[in-house]
Deep mutational scan, measured.
Amino acid sequence: HNLTITQGKLFFHYNPKLCLSEIHKMEEVSGTKGRQERNDIALKTNGDQASCENELLKFSYIRTSFDKILLRWEPYWPPDFRDLLGFMLFYKEAPYQNVTEFDGQDACGSNSWTVVDIDPPLRSNDPKSQNHPGWLMRGLKPWTQYAIFVKTLVTFSDERRTYGAKSDIIYVQTDATNPSVPLDPISVSNSSSQIILKWKPPSDPNGNITHYLVFWERQAEDSELFELDYCLKGLKLPSRTWSPPFESEDSQKHNQSEYEDSAGECCSCPKTDSQILKELEESSFRKTFEDYLHNVVFVPRKTSSGTGAEDPRPSRKRRSLGDVGNVTVAVPTVAAFPNTSSTSVPTSPEEHRPFEKVVNKESLVISGLRHFTGYRIELQACNQDTPEERCSVAAYVSARTMPEAKADDIVGPVTHEIFENNVVHLMWQEPKEPNGLIVLYEVSYRRYGDEELHLCVSRKHFALERGCRLRGLSPGNYSVRIRATSLAGNGSWTEPTYFYVTDYLDVPSNIA
């Protein structure tokens, strides 16, 4: 807008934040220059609390790290170098490059900038070799853009010569660093050979998330399962459950009422301010606690030095998902009996873990797994792929695949051998790939016309006998059925096997 004052003059007093240069501009645009008398524009009460600059400061050096910015700028000295009290560095987070010096300023003089007072450097006698002032900004957020400017702080001049310097606002972004852990990993099994893994992005990506790394490792069953005799009275049979499938998407929606109208769909109840505040506090606490764990609990591995020492970490090797089922080394339970199943799973520490690289999504279907087997899954978020990966501390989750139908069934015939004193040795093959492992066998036998009897055969007993022995049988026709019990439950009964026990007292003698 054009402003013209045809008559009258300007009068400025007691404006401590208004620089004289701005008042002189007002004289020019209003056409009143030359009308004012000496005392109409006070030299001592206008701009006496402001830094009124008329020179431009330029930054000469900028260096960044993930949490620091090192700045240096060209030296500046007023005509009387004693008038320079120091520099004021202003900075704040700036997602967009549209910041002005006066953003967030209120009537009390406060604003949204963080201000650092910096002492002037030592003055050199040689004007050509003056030290460049600077400042190291610490405690910054990774991968965050900051708006920065600097200006001088000078003393009051009796001659009211307006001098000083100020830089333009520059924008500097800190470097990326390792992201925080992925949030809320959930693993479920939808079949006997697959596990579905879902997660949420890290709360602090500290860069642009480029991919996720998912490692999985087959877990050995508890050692007590191999040692305890679950045929003993009072000892509860062990059981394991597989990871249940995901709930429906509708039930997972946030901010939804727990109660549904019987007449149909209901609208979600909005969260109160107290609920939102509580969630923010919980989120802040979780982030602080995660940072504490990362800094205190997890110790970084030592990389190899120039002395030739090897990095103890196993090298990563990509495998196809079809090879995942046989990740671990199978060892027989008892070496003397080769027909026992290889369900003991000690994992070799030198073995390469299978892994998958996930790009542009937060889910993965891990296939080719062994049925009813526990897996430990390790999830890392990465925001750099080359020249070397920059990934987060791992988040861990466990899951067990679903049982395989008929995996616990005894394959092959049940054979028998009759000894003296009416002892019958029953023999059968253990299931080759049971659900988890076989903890015991149930032997059901009966003599024709009598009630059915049951015998429990422990895992250890089966390994020693290759089956079991029935003792003290009365003469007669017998039928026997056997079924295995694994961590997933009972298998199917075998087809009945028949044998006849004679009275050993009636056996004919070869003595003449």
Rank of each mutant, 00 (worst) to 15 (best):
residue 374 G to N: 10
residue 362 E to W: 14
residue 211 H to C: 01
residue 311 D to Y: 09
residue 289 F to Q: 05
residue 432 K to A: 12
residue 391 C to L: 01
residue 288 T to R: 07
residue 340 T to V: 06
residue 377 I to L: 13
residue 237 L to A: 14
residue 399 A to I: 10
residue 398 S to E: 04
residue 359 V to I: 11
residue 345 V to L: 13
residue 422 N to C: 06
residue 420 E to R: 14
residue 320 S to D: 11
residue 403 P to V: 09
residue 359 V to R: 08
residue 429 Q to Y: 05
residue 272 T to Y: 11
residue 226 F to H: 13
residue 290 E to N: 07
residue 283 S to M: 15
residue 332 P to M: 10
residue 258 E to R: 10
residue 243 S to R: 10
residue 497 T to K: 07
residue 477 N to T: 03
residue 407 A to F: 09
residue 460 K to I: 11
residue 214 V to P: 00
residue 423 V to R: 14
residue 325 G to D: 15
residue 392 S to E: 03
residue 259 Y to T: 13
residue 444 S to Y: 13
residue 490 N to H: 01
residue 402 M to F: 11
residue 270 P to S: 09
residue 308 G to H: 09
residue 505 L to N: 09
residue 240 R to V: 12
residue 232 L to M: 09
residue 465 E to I: 08
residue 304 S to I: 13
residue 279 E to V: 06
residue 428 W to L: 00
residue 397 V to Q: 02
residue 327 V to N: 06
residue 354 P to F: 08
residue 340 T to A: 08
residue 245 P to R: 14
residue 288 T to P: 07
residue 296 V to I: 05
residue 343 T to P: 08
residue 427 M to D: 04
residue 350 E to K: 04
residue 321 L to V: 09
residue 301 R to V: 06
residue 244 P to L: 10
residue 298 F to N: 15
residue 401 T to M: 01
residue 501 V to S: 02
residue 227 E to N: 10
residue 257 S to C: 06
residue 353 R to A: 05
residue 439 V to E: 07
residue 315 S to W: 12
residue 318 R to N: 07
residue 410 I to S: 08
residue 245 P to Q: 15
residue 461 H to G: 09
residue 356 E to G: 14
residue 296 V to F: 05
residue 339 N to G: 06
residue 236 K to P: 12
residue 287 K to W: 15
residue 355 F to C: 12
residue 471 R to T: 08
residue 280 L to I: 13
residue 408 D to T: 01
residue 324 V to W: 09
residue 485 T to M: 10
residue 410 I to R: 02
residue 209 I to P: 13
residue 305 S to A: 10
residue 481 R to W: 07
residue 453 L to A: 02
residue 293 L to C: 04
residue 466 R to V: 05
residue 224 E to S: 14
residue 459 R to S: 09
residue 376 R to K: 14
residue 219 Q to C: 04
residue 261 D to F: 08
residue 247 E to M: 09
residue 506 D to N: 14
residue 280 L to T: 14
residue 452 E to C: 11
residue 252 Q to V: 09
residue 338 P to N: 06
residue 320 S to N: 11
residue 445 Y to C: 04
residue 461 H to E: 06
residue 222 D to C: 13
residue 242 W to A: 04
residue 348 S to E: 09
residue 335 A to G: 07
residue 308 G to S: 12
residue 225 L to M: 12
residue 404 E to P: 02
residue 506 D to M: 08
residue 484 A to M: 08
residue 372 F to S: 06
residue 325 G to E: 06
residue 485 T to W: 09
residue 283 S to Y: 13
residue 209 I to N: 13
residue 449 G to Q: 11
residue 480 V to S: 02
residue 464 L to V: 12
residue 237 L to F: 06
residue 400 R to E: 08
residue 243 S to Y: 06
residue 217 E to L: 11
residue 231 C to R: 02
residue 472 G to P: 05
residue 394 A to R: 07
residue 289 F to I: 11
residue 412 G to V: 07
residue 475 P to H: 10
residue 479 S to N: 02
residue 324 V to S: 09
residue 478 Y to V: 01
residue 380 Q to G: 06
residue 380 Q to I: 13
residue 283 S to W: 03
residue 464 L to H: 14
residue 479 S to V: 05
residue 389 E to S: 10
residue 431 P to C: 08
residue 368 G to V: 04
residue 358 V to F: 04
residue 296 V to L: 07
residue 225 L to K: 06
residue 354 P to G: 12
residue 226 F to W: 02
residue 505 L to S: 09
residue 323 D to Q: 15
residue 423 V to A: 14
residue 417 E to S: 08
residue 411 V to S: 10
residue 325 G to V: 13
residue 456 C to S: 03
residue 479 S to W: 06
residue 452 E to V: 07
residue 414 V to R: 01
residue 353 R to S: 10
residue 227 E to G: 14
residue 434 P to R: 02
residue 500 Y to D: 08
residue 498 Y to L: 07
residue 483 R to M: 13
residue 312 P to N: 05
residue 270 P to K: 08
residue 287 K to I: 06
residue 359 V to M: 14
residue 238 P to E: 03
residue 276 I to P: 08
residue 207 G to H: 03
residue 351 E to V: 10
residue 485 T to Y: 09
residue 217 E to N: 15
residue 417 E to G: 07
residue 440 L to F: 07
residue 460 K to R: 07
residue 436 G to N: 02
residue 321 L to Y: 09
residue 455 L to Q: 07
residue 335 A to Q: 07
residue 423 V to L: 03
residue 500 Y to F: 04
residue 357 K to P: 11
residue 238 P to V: 05
residue 325 G to A: 15
residue 480 V to P: 01
residue 422 N to M: 03
residue 264 G to N: 15
residue 302 K to M: 12
residue 333 T to D: 12
residue 467 G to V: 05
residue 281 E to S: 08
residue 286 R to P: 09
residue 363 S to Q: 15
residue 482 I to N: 00
residue 497 T to S: 06
residue 491 G to H: 02
residue 222 D to Y: 12
residue 206 N to Q: 06
residue 313 R to G: 04
residue 228 L to T: 08
residue 243 S to G: 06
residue 207 G to L: 03
residue 294 H to R: 05
residue 445 Y to F: 06
residue 246 F to G: 09
residue 359 V to H: 12
residue 338 P to D: 05
residue 322 G to A: 14
residue 234 G to L: 09
residue 442 E to S: 13
residue 306 G to N: 12
residue 419 F to L: 09
residue 438 I to W: 02
residue 244 P to E: 10
residue 509 S to F: 10
residue 383 N to K: 03
residue 305 S to V: 10
residue 425 H to C: 05
residue 508 P to I: 03
residue 356 E to D: 06
residue 302 K to T: 11
residue 279 E to Q: 11
residue 273 D to E: 11
residue 288 T to C: 10
residue 217 E to F: 03
residue 461 H to C: 10
residue 241 T to S: 07
residue 285 F to P: 10
residue 351 E to R: 04
residue 505 L to F: 12
residue 394 A to P: 07
residue 442 E to T: 13
residue 432 K to E: 12
residue 354 P to Y: 14
residue 462 F to I: 03
residue 439 V to D: 03
residue 509 S to P: 09
residue 448 Y to L: 06
residue 503 D to V: 13
residue 462 F to R: 07
residue 500 Y to Q: 06
residue 425 H to N: 14
residue 342 S to C: 04
residue 400 R to A: 09
residue 484 A to S: 12
residue 223 S to N: 11
residue 406 K to H: 11
residue 247 E to G: 08
residue 497 T to H: 08
residue 420 E to D: 11
residue 245 P to G: 12
residue 439 V to S: 08
residue 257 S to N: 07
residue 305 S to R: 08
residue 476 G to N: 01
residue 481 R to Y: 07
residue 241 T to N: 08
residue 216 W to T: 08
residue 248 S to R: 09
residue 370 R to I: 13
residue 365 V to T: 04
residue 302 K to H: 14
residue 232 L to P: 14
residue 204 D to V: 11
residue 369 L to C: 11
residue 260 E to K: 02
residue 415 T to P: 02
residue 254 H to E: 04
residue 220 A to P: 12
residue 501 V to W: 02
residue 226 F to K: 03
residue 270 P to L: 04
residue 206 N to F: 13
residue 440 L to V: 07
residue 471 R to N: 10
residue 436 G to W: 02
residue 264 G to H: 11
residue 402 M to T: 06
residue 229 D to F: 13
residue 259 Y to R: 10
residue 315 S to M: 13
residue 372 F to H: 10
residue 248 S to V: 13
residue 219 Q to N: 07
residue 435 N to T: 00
residue 502 T to F: 05
residue 284 S to F: 09
residue 236 K to L: 12
residue 216 W to V: 13
residue 282 E to Q: 15
residue 329 V to K: 04
residue 274 S to H: 14
residue 386 T to E: 10
residue 440 L to T: 04
residue 463 A to V: 10
residue 261 D to P: 11
residue 400 R to I: 07
residue 209 I to L: 10
residue 486 S to P: 00
residue 450 D to W: 08
residue 249 E to H: 06
residue 216 W to C: 10
residue 341 S to G: 08
residue 488 A to S: 06
residue 395 A to F: 08
residue 387 P to Q: 11
residue 282 E to V: 08
residue 312 P to L: 13
residue 356 E to A: 13
residue 249 E to Q: 15
residue 500 Y to I: 09
residue 490 N to M: 05
residue 257 S to D: 05
residue 412 G to R: 11
residue 457 V to C: 12
residue 289 F to A: 04
residue 458 S to K: 14
residue 302 K to R: 11
residue 389 E to L: 11
residue 278 K to E: 04
residue 211 H to I: 01
residue 441 Y to H: 02
residue 345 V to M: 09
residue 388 E to W: 07
residue 232 L to Y: 10
residue 376 R to L: 07
residue 350 E to T: 08
residue 439 V to W: 07
residue 403 P to Q: 07
residue 408 D to R: 00
residue 401 T to G: 00
residue 475 P to D: 04
residue 303 T to M: 09
residue 470 L to T: 02
residue 235 L to E: 11
residue 435 N to Q: 01
residue 467 G to L: 03
residue 438 I to H: 02
residue 427 M to Q: 02
residue 231 C to Q: 02
